[in-house]
């Protein structure tokens, strides 16, 4: 089995805390400047675009915990996005129609309160991630890829067949989503809510990667046999990484549904999972912040290309092929190049 790892996986350890934090803070500050800029340009669409960037960045950053740091190539992330999205949409749907959700084992009613719906979306995704992860993680390598792909398709078909909630057409959120009565779905406040969550996730994930847990999953990615020989059981570590990643995917989906007031099976198609992997690799596998840049570049490129031609996917596919052939470390490599140049300049 060919085992050529991107050298960047090892680089994480050697980068100092400041070196790791600098791009992270820079990205968040840049993203925070988007709304004033959009207002100055009088183009509210920019805010909408970057809300989408942040929402997908959350899913991609989470996916990187599995794909980048654990070397488990999951094509199930879009499935978790769908679970989170449908949780919010279904709860809101029942709230608007004033129907109870279940009556057994206890009565559950719908809600439009995001303070309840968002965590619940993440929780439901976490439960599904735990079940599917337990099965997929029994396998490894290509089996794992195919199994996660199959489960993504299973979740997709489930919602396509769910006529009660719109089936293939998707589910519209008709009521007003709120947080304990406060309206947060206005464009700008919602943008900052999403950005705040992304910032917290980035910092927590950075600490997590550096923790004992993070060291174990990175070690497992490099040589599972040695880690087992040290007496560390691998499954529980991989499963925790997979569940965290799935839960944050669910959160991302919940935010996606709230931002577009709509969720449909198309948001959880397996191609979307592939796109998320592309975002992660485009940004840089071995960094916490890389996928944020990857998501931004991916979605902006998609928008620009699609405005030129309806056949933009041709160019997009070629970009992915060329990227895979030549840009091994993603955009993060460009950053580490900047750091190296800066260091050699200041050493002079």
């Amino acid at each position: 089995m060919p085992l050529i790892r991107p050298a960047t996986v090892q680089q994480f350890r050697t980068a100092s805390f400041n070196e790791r934090m600098a791009p992270l803070i820079l990205l968040v500050v840049l993203l925070a400047l988007v709304p004033p800029l959009a207002q100055a340009l009088d183009d509210p669409f920019i805010i909408k675009l970057f809300t989408r960037v942040i929402v997908f960045a959350i899913a991609a950053v989470a996916l990187n915990l599995v794909v980048g740091f654990s070397d488990l190539i999951s094509l199930l992330q879009a499935g978790f996005i769908g679970i989170g999205g449908y949780t919010v949409a279904i709860l809101a749907n029942h709230d608007v129609n004033a129907e109870v959700l279940t009556t057994w084992p206890f009565v559950l009613v719908g809600t439009s309160n995001l303070a309840i719906a968002l965590p619940l979306g993440a929780l439901v995704a976490a439960v599904i991630a735990a079940v599917t992860g337990l099965i997929c993680l029994r396998t490894s390598g290509a089996y794992f890829i195919m199994a996660t792909l199959a489960f993504n398709q299973m979740l997709y078909y489930f919602f396509v067949a769910l006529q009660r909630y719109g089936g293939e057409d998707g589910l519209q959120i008709l009521g007003n989503l709120h947080v304990f009565g406060f309206n947060v779905t206005k464009r700008v406040p919602f943008y900052y809510v999403c950005l705040g969550m992304l910032a917290v996730i980035l910092v927590v994930l950075d600490r997590l990667i550096d923790s004992r847990f993070g060291v174990v999953i990175r070690a497992l990615a490099q040589n599972e046999r040695r880690v087992v020989a040290l007496g560390i059981p691998p499954l529980r570590y991989k499963l925790v990484a997979f569940v965290i990643s799935g839960a944050l995917g669910g959160l991302s989906g919940a935010l996606l549904a709230a931002s577009q007031q709509f969720i449909s099976p198309a948001d959880m198609a397996w191609t979307r999972s592939g796109e998320l992997v592309v975002m992660v690799v485009l940004g840089g596998l071995a960094t916490v912040w890389g996928p944020v840049a990857g998501a931004a570049v991916f979605l902006v490129l998609e928008l620009v290309l699609s405005s030129y031609s309806i056949h933009w996917q041709l160019v997009f596919g070629l970009v992915i092929i060329v990227m895979t052939l030549y840009l091994r470390g993603g955009l993060a490599d460009l950053w580490s190049l900047v750091v190296r140049v800066y260091k050699s300049e200041s050493a002079r």
Binding site: P2, L3, I4, R5, P6, V67, D71, I73, L75, G141, A142, I145, G274, V277, V278, V281, Q313, L314, F316, G317, L318, V319, I320, I321, M323, T324, L325
Partner: peptide, 16 residues
């Protein structure tokens, strides 16, 4: 190459 690279390149091929 790694499985990840194979997934990416064949995903790009599908789009093309």
């Amino acid at each position: 190459r790694t499985h990840l690279d194979q997934v990416l390149v064949t995903f790009g091929l599908i789009l093309v």
